[in-house]
Amino acid sequence: MSIDSVFVHKMWDENELSKMVDGGVPFPMLSDGGGQIGRLYGVFNEEAGVENRGRFIIDPDGVIQGYEVLTPPVGRNVNETIRQLQAFQYVRNSKGTEATPAGWKPGKTTLKPGPDLVGNVWKEWQTKMVE
């Protein structure tokens, strides 16, 4: 989503993005002319009149689980976004019985919070596991 019109989105997709991604952008490219939605999400840059780079992960209940906001010159890391999505999905599927430690990736150890884990996380998780 940006403040550009849907017509500009079409031109950008056809003339540039489709040369980076086969078949062009598959998901909806939304238009927020005037920045009302950007303001609603707290990421509209009033000085520049454009959206900052805001990224929101919304779960199937419509609840925001995470967000990240960057100023314009630095791009996002889609791999980190996917990692977070996988972690939120894992936790949701466990119905809150498991948590994912720092740097978790699919297949790595999760934590099962409870009285026995207090003071014993060091037995389950080491900094080298982040690699």
């Binding site: 454009v50 929101f56 199937p60």
Partner: peptide
């Protein structure tokens, strides 16, 4: 809603 949604905002096309 009912599926996972990723909402991304960015400064501008091109």
């Amino acid at each position: 809603f009912g599926q996972w949604v990723l909402l991304c905002l960015y400064p501008g096309d091109f």
